[in-house]
Each structure stands twice: as C-alpha cells, then as structure tokens.
C-alpha cells in the first residue's frame, strides 16, 4: 500500500509541477513561483500553431494506427494459425523496430527516404515510421487473444455451414475486437508522443505536437505555453483511457506489450 503511494507520488509530483508551472509567471519555470498568472493559458488559446500541430498529430497517429491494425492483425493470424518457414524470424522481425533505439530507426528511415529513394519527407514518411514500430503492439495484443480463443469456435461455426468470411465477421472479429481496440489505443499513444523517429522523418514543414513542443520549448518567449498544452493533454487523456477501460473489460490493462 505504502509502496503504491510512493510510486504514485513519484509519478504525480512532476506532473503537478507541469500544471503549476502553466500558471507560473516566470518564463523559465523558476521555483517556487513568485507570482501566478493566467497569461499563458490566454496565449495558448489564441495560438493557431498548436492547433495545427495537434491536427497533424491526430492525422499521423490515426493513419499509423490504421496501418498497424491491418498489418499487425494479419500477421497475428498467420503466426497463430499456421506453421511456415521463417515464422521465428517474423516474430523476431516484428519486435525489432520497437527494440532497436529510436535514433537508429530514425536515421535509417531518414537515410532511406532522403538518400536512397528520394521520397520527400512529409506526413507520409511520418506515418511509415510510426506504423513500423506500432505494428508490434497490435500484433502482440491480437496474438495473445487468438491463442487464448483457440480455433474451436471457428470450427464449430464452419461445421454449422458458415463460410470463412461469415465466420470471421460473426465469430472471430467480435472476440478479437477488444484486444484490437487496446492494441490500437496503445499504438496511437506511442505515435502521439513519439519524438525521436518523428524528428528524422518529418519534413520540417510538418510539426506534430511533440515537434511543435520541441521547437517552442527552446524559445523562452513561447516556453510557458508548452506547459499549458501539456497540462491540457493530461486532462484530456482521461477520455481515451476511460474508453479503453470500458471497452476492454476482459482484456488486460489497456493492452499487453
């Protein structure tokens, strides 16, 4: 109990510092705040750059999650239902993008896009980068669920005359849905706060929210606004977390890794 308390304190003291600093009149977050102000909140609301960045982040996150859902799920089906040459390496390969440091993935992709295939960096390259390391979380969630489900339900369905597509639609998918939701949410979360791979794959014209924060945090005139954005994100994040809790009743904790 007390350990839990210490752990939560460890998590929440710095977060409260963020919230308090969003009212701190000092531009460099000096502590303790000598004066409080709502100036930064006002400035953040009138800042159109942050809203644009937010929409880029949402676009990148949703697209990457969509691709990860497609690729991760089909890979999970293949691995859970079939035996084939290369199965071991596929399951290793899918883990690789998340287990190699982001800076390596980042410069590898940047080098490939810029030097090798001459694809100019933009939203597309961000999505490719994010989807690559998001596949694994969808894959893991789906695979765990498929293994637990077994094949008996599908076989029963087929025995009763349903074809593959009907069985998938009526039996497999509903059973898989909550795991996919959990995996998708986690994938979205990973993409949403990703900065290292994004730094290397984003065209300088596209600012996702973390890039916007990175650019603005280092300019003292803008830095306090960043705290406002972060404080808002923490509060807004309650919504997806609540949703995931509701929807993944039987599934574990917003997803397995």
């Amino acid at each position: 109990m007390s350990l839990m308390g210490i752990g939560l304190a460890f998590i929440y003291v710095p977060l409260s510092v963020v919230v308090i600093n969003s009212f701190n009149s000092s531009r460099t977050f000096s502590w303790p705040p000598s004066r409080f102000t709502t100036e930064w909140w006002g400035k953040a609301i009138s800042n159109t750059g942050v809203r644009k960045a937010l929409s880029w982040s949402l676009a990148a996150g949703l697209s990457a999650t969509f691709i990860a859902l497609l690729l991760g799920t089909s890979l999970a089906f293949a691995v859970s239902r079939y035996n084939f040459f290369g199965k071991d390496i596929i399951s290793l390969l899918v883990v690789l993008p998340i287990s190699l440091p982001g800076v390596v993935t980042g410069i590898a992709l940047s080098n490939a896009f810029n030097q090798q295939i001459g694809l100019s960096t933009g939203l597309l390259t961000i999505v490719i980068g994010h989807a690559t390391f998001c596949i694994v979380v969808v894959y893991n969630n789906a695979l765990a669920r498929l293994r637990r489900m077994g094949t008996s339900l599908q076989e029963a369905s087929m025995d009763l005359g349903a074809n593959g597509i009907t069985t998938f639609r009526l039996i497999t998918l509903p059973n898989l849905a909550s795991a996919l939701f959990a995996g998708g949410l986690l994938a979205f979360g990973l993409s949403f706060d990703e900065i290292v791979v994004t730094t290397f794959t984003a065209g300088p014209g596209i600012q996702t929210l973390p890039i916007w924060i990175y650019n603005n945090l280092f300019r003292p005139s803008q830095a306090p606004i960043v705290n406002v954005v972060a404080a808002t994100l923490v509060v807004v994040s309650v919504i997806p977390i609540y949703l995931s809790q509701r929807l993944s009743q039987d599934s574990t904790s917003g997803g397995r890794f």
């Binding site: 977050f29 945090l217 960043v226 972060a230």
Partner: peptide, 27 residues
C-alpha cells in the same frame, strides 16, 4: 481500473514537458 488509469495518464503528457518538469524538480 482507476489505478491503471492513474499509471497510464503520464504517458500522454509530452515527453519533453516531463523532462523539463524534472529540470525544475532537480535544480
């Protein structure tokens, strides 16, 4: 569920903002 939510929440506050908060913490 509440505890899981409490543990997940900081994941949504930006990485950079959290590290700058630690700068304020550790000064």
């Amino acid at each position: 569920k509440i505890l899981v939510a409490l543990v997940l929440t900081p994941l949504w506050a930006s990485y950079l903002v959290k590290i700058y908060a630690w700068r304020t913490m550790l000064e």
